[in-house]
Write a protein that binds this DNA or RNA. Structure first.
Lengths: 156, 156
DNA sequence: GGTGAAACGTGTTGAGA
DNA sequence: TCTCAACACGTTTCACC
């Protein structure tokens, strides 16, 4: 894997391959091959190169949380006491399964997190019993996502 | 696909299968079968059920944006004029490829978006030439993610 | 870079417990 | 729901262009 500071060059064929696989990671290579008119072996070689360049970070099945009863998504801005070091807070946040993302941000807050809960009651519980309990957390601001209207990866 | 208001019941075997595939969507079903000690055909049947329940929303290759030179991620809170309807703004935001997420939120802003840019200069350009140009956008607040410390899906 | 072919492994189905 | 077995199909490698 190359340094992440090094840009990787990809051509139009790479882009076509990636566009297929970013949509459906299990799409057979041979099917892609037939679609773009080159051999399966060639695609295989290109994918190995893209993987070792670090451009392909892996593949994932995507789960629909709504079907599991998780319908409330929210962003929470967290203010930390000055004395509190960010890494310790992150360590605690990692233990909370409802926390899906955690960003160390510029601006108002020290930390911005994304949480996924079953409902508002569950969200309130996570706020009061998990997040606010973390030492150093002084205040939080919650923004509930009423609807997620765009969700995508970098366009290539 | 069932209604998204209907919870789906999954057992321990389903969870094991999903945990493997959420980590690596291309992991062969037969390999998973050997790992958890049931036949490949059984896994195949379970996956078909999980898919038709809507729990599996698909699969994706994950691209590492840093390797493509995209190193600046930010959240932007957008204030809309009262006269402005949210759907029109979202339609415009969809046309901006740097916008990866868009949430209609409670709280200060009308909209919270996540953007991915090459660098701060690129972010400034997207703010001034794309986002601020959208009719109805009155003010924005930007939070740059200096580091993303947690990134995961719902835990099952 | 690319190809085709061979060897091997996986996906998928259907009958039956 | 599961298994087994059969077949179709995909992946991977390699020699060669």
């Amino acid at each position: 894997m190359k340094s992440t500071n090094e840009k990787v060059k990809i051509d139009g064929i790479d882009k076509k391959i990636l566009r297929f696989l970013m949509q459906d990671a299990r799409k057979p290579i041979l099917e892609i091959a037939r679609n773009i008119g080159i051999s399966g072996a060639a695609i295989h070689q290109r994918l190995r190169k893209l993987e070792s360049s670090g451009l392909i970070a892996g593949s994932k099945f995507i789960i629909n949380p709504k079907v599991m009863g998780y319908t409330t998504m929210a962003y929470i801005g967290i203010f930390l006491d000055k004395a509190m070091s960010n890494p310790i807070a992150v360590k605690e946040l990692e233990k909370i399964p409802e926390v899906l993302e955690c960003h160390y941000t510029t601006g108002n807050w020290s930390i911005l997190i994304k949480v996924l809960c079953r409902d508002n009651e569950h969200l309130m519980h996570v706020l009061n019993h998990n997040i606010q309990k973390i030492e150093g957390v002084s205040r939080t601001e919650t923004f509930i996502s009423l609807q997620q209207q765009i969700e995508r990866q970098i366009q290539i």
